[in-house]
Nucleic acid binder design. Structure first.
Lengths: 224, 224
DNA sequence: GAGAGCAAGTGATTTAGTCACTTTGTGACT
DNA sequence: AGTCACAAAGTGACTAAATCACTTGCTCTC
């Protein structure tokens, strides 16, 4: 069973090999589909299928008329499912439940890590005066994970937040907690800065619990 | 910017719509590529690109000569990157670091949850007498996450373990900790069963720390 | 020098087929 | 009657040769 080495999956691996051999990072251009087809001695539709697979995981990006480029998540070990099922109140609560389990420990770790906190502080203050939209509010949690010093944890939190990005923003717009969020974020930041792991952990737990309560109280709208 | 609704991404959404409207689950067959092409009034290569994207995220599966079927991870919110970068000692340690941050809290949650522990106990005992290979040893951690009652957490741990499945197995085979693992797993299980959250948390932390030390002591081989 | 416009390169998609694999059912043989 | 071999139908895998649409950069003009 499955003695088949693979189908055109070998192509995706080969393309990834090219990207890594050339030491390309996100944003860099990769050879055109036509050239890849020539190089592997196959036809364009076949190479396109391989590229589509890579596109689905964010390893490459297409830009019509311009070229194909290395995607932002090529080095991720875990990623948000781009083909996510439709949202329900239950799924949102499960998501918050997962964060409630993880993020307090992350905050505690950030408090005892020696990472730079500049970007975390920026995320706190930027949330109040949003120059780039409401997505900034979520940024705090990703930066908090980044401050833990473990890039995998950062990916994990980032993925969890990305899954429901639009919905999270919608929730935040409905119940304008911007000020309360700001206060709570700042309190967490200060605990982290002071190296008080226990306080950071508890404050994060409280913060997420407030969000959970808000979601639980909400009667859900339909999905757009 | 990006006023373009999308390209043939609409196809992937449409296919997912068909799957959900027909209430299909993993293993169920979906219409053939030719029929989908006819239904959407496009050609087969185009529909194949869309299906490939879905294949990359585990939403569908191809079986040559048989058909296309719904994949196992279609309802996941987060998934392991199938195009993972090559392994390094550092990346393995980062992975363990992430688990060290998350799993103790998961174990504590499992101890106070009211979930059934049958499968968890089975995972403990099966690890010693492996009927299905060494993958069973990792199963314990997934079942532990399942026992927490939060499916998102289960997905998360499952994804983290899947990323380095082969490598993890390799590590385990090299340093045959099977007996020590069994003892530690059993201790964690018993703490969970007894509802002792603090003990479950600490035992899990110790267990993962033992693995971390073992990996840190290992001088790494090349990748196959 | 600045702008309009053309041309080359690229992805997006079509059309029309061939090959390889799996499944299933039918028929012949035992 | 049961079983096995084989053919047929359906499916995915892939090829081949185009055409359309978009981006970019260059050149030519004013």
């Amino acid at each position: 069973m499955d003695v088949t080495p693979s189908l055109s999956d070998r192509l995706t691996e080969a393309i990834l090999g090219i990207i890594r051999d050339a030491d390309l990072g996100p944003g860099d251009a990769i050879p055109s589909a036509r050239e890849l087809a020539k190089r592997f001695e196959i036809t364009t539709p076949t190479i396109r299928e391989a590229l589509r697979k890579l596109e689905a995981t964010g390893a490459v990006e297409f830009r019509h008329g311009s070229g194909t480029y290395v995607g932002p998540t090529i080095n991720n070990v875990v990623l948000a499912n781009p083909h996510r099922p439709p949202i329900t109140k239950e799924s949102v609560l499960q998501l918050i439940g997962a964060r409630l389990l993880i993020e307090p420990a992350v905050a505690a770790q950030a408090a005892i890590a020696t990472q730079s906190l500049d970007k975390l502080e920026a995320a706190v203050t930027n949330a109040l005066t949003p120059p780039g939209g409401p997505a900034f509010a979520l940024n705090f949690h990703v930066e908090l994970a980044a401050a833990s010093g473990n890039p995998v944890v950062e990916e994990l939190i980032g993925s969890l937040l990305k899954v429901r990005l639009r919905e999270q923003q919608q929730i935040r717009q409905l119940y304008d907690n911007r000020n309360r969020d700001y206060e709570e974020h700042r309190a967490i930041f200060e605990a982290v800065q002071a190296g008080d792991a226990a306080a950071a952990e508890q404050l994060t737990r409280d913060h997420l619990d407030h969000i959970r309560v808000a979601v639980e109280a909400a009667e859900f709208l339909e999905l757009p």
